[in-house]
Every structure is written in structure tokens, then in C-alpha cells.
Design a protein around this nucleic acid. Sequence first.
DNA 1: GCCTTTCTCTACCATTTGGTAGAGAAAGGT
DNA 2: ACCTTTCTCTACCAAATGGTAGAGAAAGGC
Lengths: 199, 199
Amino acid sequence: MARRTRQNILDVAGNLFGHRGFDAVSLDQIAAEVGVAKQTLLYWFASKDELIQEVLSETAIELTLVIEAAIRSAPDDPLDRMEAVVKAVFRPAVRRPSLLGLVREISRLPSESSERLTDSLRPLVERAVSWMRTEMDAGRLRRADPALIVALAYATVTGIATEPEALRVVGWNADIVGLRRLRDELIGFLRAALAPVSD
Amino acid sequence: MARRTRQNILDVAGNLFGHRGFDAVSLDQIAAEVGVAKQTLLYWFASKDELIQEVLSETAIELTLVIEAAIRSAPDDPLDRMEAVVKAVFRPAVRRPSLLGLVREISRLPSESSERLTDSLRPLVERAVSWMRTEMDAGRLRRADPALIVALAYATVTGIATEPEALRVVGWNADIVGLRRLRDELIGFLRAALAPVSD
DNA sequence: GCCTTTCTCTACCATTTGGTAGAGAAAGGT
DNA sequence: ACCTTTCTCTACCAAATGGTAGAGAAAGGC
């Protein structure tokens, strides 16, 4: 029955890690927020490292599934397709803003588990890159370096996820504007930057 | 003479904080890397909080100066001008990659000092926004929401700064590609997305 | 009813954390 | 030579950290 406890721990830990960072969050805090003793955490997860590892791989799986589903049912036009994928990435993030902040924590893991996660995302990235290259060759996207575009998009998304607080520095108020509008501006940006040049 | 110690501490702390995050770095680690006892840190800075606060305001001042200098001597064409500013932002970051990572830490400060920093950056941001609006009204930039563009650019830059490791997830190898090429791609992107529509 | 597995608890521990107290060099002004 | 200021040290501390040991509920199979 109390298998739900495990899921609760994963959810709470995911939010806290994504929000404040791995090192800033203690097991005691997580336990308190779940409403459970610290030992219960350590019953379910052997260590703090294993906990975040589990959280991250759950997140990676979720994101992968969402993106793949979006690709399968996406329209054929490359710009529409990109819009669909970006929206798919944002959908879970809008619902649970701390989610993307987690990706940042990958680099703080012991290199071994960090690599395992990177590997699980790699196929998706490679697919995106080779797809963009094909579209560019066909003249349906403006020519550019696809790998760098993916890197930039990724940087932007994680930058947004870094914290609403951080964006407040540039006058962005999350409560008023909302992640959704920022997402739409990003999409408009991508469309403008990647539309094929009409010659 | 040993005022240099203070600067050494600031430099080392800046790198470590930007690289690993505020909570992940202990005073002992900083002291060890500077080659000095922990108490020496606490002689120069009353607490860890004051230390990062000092590091951040130094960074904010540096960035502000660099950007303002770039604006003063920038060409008149809005796209060239944007390119000049982006390059100015990247110049110190290329030299010292951990620098921009620091901005991320702002949101983890006690809200009071976080606000002080935000305030020191605000004029620059407002200036950029109003400048963009003017250029858009004059038809020299594609119409969009300037505040959101600044937010996106900021998010992208901090996303890049988040860690080369994190970008490795999307296949970006810092050693080979380099921050400089990513910067140039970003500039090309901005140009394409913000060029006025020729009607 | 009993036993085994699953689950959560209280109590404890070694280490590390940010920070204090206060002594002693180094150096410069006079 | 002496004093003051600047600078760095050793020694210590209370609190918090990740983690261990082991006991006791809960619940299901038989």
C-alpha cells in the first residue's frame, strides 16, 4: 500500500532539487515535506545520490515519452513540427515548473550516473539533429548548424527553468506573464530565425 | 600588501560559486584553494553570505561597465548594435567561463541582497527594452515583445553558462566547439529572428 | 493464530558546516 | 625603539548533515 510513499518522496524530492539544487536540499527537509521520517527515505533509496538519480531518470523518461509522442503526431511542415515539439517540452514544465530545473543538476552527479542519463537523451538529440539537417538540405529550413541550434534551444529552456526569480532580474514577472507566453515568444523566435529564405 | 589576498579570495570564490553553486562550496574549500586559513576568509568577509554578495556585485559592476562601453562605441544599425552587445557580454565569460554561472546564484541569496543586485541591473535592462521598442516602431527591427526578447536572451546566456557539462547532454563538446562559436550562432539567430520584414 | 514480508519509526553517530575567541606575526608611522 | 594597524594563524564550538542499527507496526498468505 505504502508504495505511494515512494512516489511521494520522488515527487517532493524532484520539486525541491529542481527548485533549490541538489546540495541545498537536505534529506531532513524532504522527509519533513513528505511528512515522513528521514529513515523512511533511506529505506526506499539507499542514499541521497541514489534518490536524485532515480528522480532524474524518471524525469528523463517522462520527457522522452512526451517528446516522442509529439513527434509521432506532429504535422509535416518543419516549422509546425518544431512548434509541436517545443510545446511538448513545455507541457510538463508548465504544469510542474521545477521539472526542467532538474536537468541542471545532471552535471553535479557522479560522472558515471551523469553519463548514463546523457546516453538516455542522446538518441533523441541525434534524431533531432539529423532531421533538421535533412530539412535544411531540402531547403525547408534556413541553413545553420543543427547541433548548435539544439544546444541553444536546450540552453534557453534550461535557462528559463533555472528559476523564475532569476528572470526577474530582467524584469520578467512570472505571475503576470507566465511561462506560456515566454514559450510562445520562443516559438515565434524559432520560426523567424529558421524560416527558409525565399530567394 | 596582503590586500591582494582579498582579491584572490574573491576570484577563487567567484569561480567556485559560479561553477558548483553557492551551497555546494564550503568556506574550507575556498580557503584551501586560495592557500590560506578559513579564518582569513572570515577576517575579510564577515560571513559566507557577505562573500558571495561581494563577488556578485563585483561581477555585476564588471558586466555593466563592459556592456555600457560596448553600447557607447557601437554602430548605429540595430542588428550590428545587438551583435556588439552580445559579444561584449560574452567577452568576460569566454575568458572566465564560470562568471555567468554566478548570475544563477542570485536567486539563492537572501531576498534583500538579491533585490539590491536586481536593482543595479535594472537600468541596463530598461534601456535595452526601450531602445528595442523605438527601433521596432521605426521599422528597423521586426516587431515583437522587447521585454520577452531580453528575457529569452538572458535565459539563453545563463543556460549556456549553467555548465558546459549540461550542454554535453545535447552533444555539445566545449573543448571542440567552444563558447565563441556558440556565441556566433546565437548572434546569427538573433539577426535572422529580428531582421525587419521587407514588405 | 502465526509467520514472513513490507514498511516506518526512535535513537544514535561521525563528519562537515559556518562561525567565534583570541593570540601572534608583519609592517609602517613616529 | 615603540606602538598601532593590518593581517593570518591555531584551537574550538554548536548545529546540521548523510547515514547506521535495530526495534516495532501493518498486512497478507497459510
